[in-house]
């Protein structure tokens, strides 16, 4: 009896839009006053196969999501190990590390636009102060735009990864460390043979989630570069957004969404399976 009222919001706000979106991907829905909508089977997908711009944006999306996830993980692991030590001002440091989490992505993007401004930004001023080349047009130059956006993505997503890894680190049993130390294992070997194996489930969980989040990132890049220059940072989400809300091709854009979900799900299935096998062996 009590289940029903709890289900209503889920059905209304979650299941209905989801199903609607999936179904839309098999129709010719387009903007137009009183325009009828017809099912068109797999026509959208056949068209999508030959849409070079979509696939090149998909490539950008994979490069972006992979690099951000890997770099984020490495940086966050370092930070988590540091914050796990008995440092002075540890509490303050932990709070500082969390701050990017509290800033909305749009604001993060605006802050970084100012930071990376080619003429007046602090990044180029800092490079100039230490005598490095300081006329780099971070977000405007096709060579630098994607790397620059990736750095911002890593910065923005580090807090949650750090927090999760830190929680994992605090669950590593200290008696294992003590036993390994007694057997003469140094810090590096203990990290490799004690810390990492115990952390493994946490690592799978957080990198998987990070990959999904990063692939679906929208606001950050929309504000930073809007996909430019020359399509270098056109993530698939931006591409589908444009298809729907700039060109009014709702059916086609939903089809892109469906394709992305399926491909990402497949990637994750392989990743998790591979990891599960490795754990068994």
């Amino acid at each position: 009896m009590l289940l029903l009222p709890a289900l209503i919001p889920v059905l209304l706000l979650s299941v209905y839009p989801l199903v609607h979106g999936i179904v839309l991907g098999f129709t010719d829905a387009q903007a137009g006053y009183n325009r009828p909508v017809h099912f068109n089977g797999i026509e959208n997908y056949a068209r999508l196969m030959s849409n070079e711009l979509f696939w090149s944006s998909f490539r950008v999306g994979v490069i972006w999501a992979l690099s951000v996830t890997v770099l984020q993980f490495l940086a966050a692991l370092g930070l988590a190990l540091l914050l796990n030590q008995n440092l002075r001002f540890r509490g303050a440091a932990r709070v500082l590390a969390l701050i990017p989490w509290a800033i909305p992505p749009v604001i993060i993007a605006i802050i970084w636009r100012l930071m990376l401004n080619p003429t007046a930004g602090p990044v180029n001023s800092a490079l100039a102060a230490v005598g490095l080349p300081h006329d780099i047009n971070w977000l405007g130059d096709p060579t630098f735009a994607l790397p620059a956006v990736i750095v911002v993505g890593v910065w923005a997503g580090m807090p949650q990864t750090t927090v999760v890894l830190l929680a994992g680190l605090q669950n590593v049993r200290s008696d294992l460390h003590e036993a390994a130390a007694l057997d003469g294992a140094g810090a590096l070997r203990r990290f490799w043979h004690v810390t990492l194996p115990s952390l493994r489930p946490v690592i799978f969980a957080i990198t998987t989630l990070d990959f999904i989040w990063n692939f679906n990132q929208f606001a950050l890049v929309y504000v930073l570069t809007a996909g430019g220059p020359g399509g270098q940072t056109m993530l698939p989400m931006l591409f589908a957004y444009n298809e729907a809300f700039k060109y009014g091709n709702f059916g086609y854009a939903s089809a892109m969404g469906n394709v992305m979900v399926v491909l990402i799900a497949l990637t994750l299935v392989f990743y998790l399976r591979h990891q599960a096998k490795e754990r068994q062996s």
Partner: peptide, 9 residues
């Protein structure tokens, strides 16, 4: 837009 951005770069 992307064509011109690349041409000017």
């Amino acid at each position: 837009t992307p064509g011109l951005q690349k041409y000017f770069a």
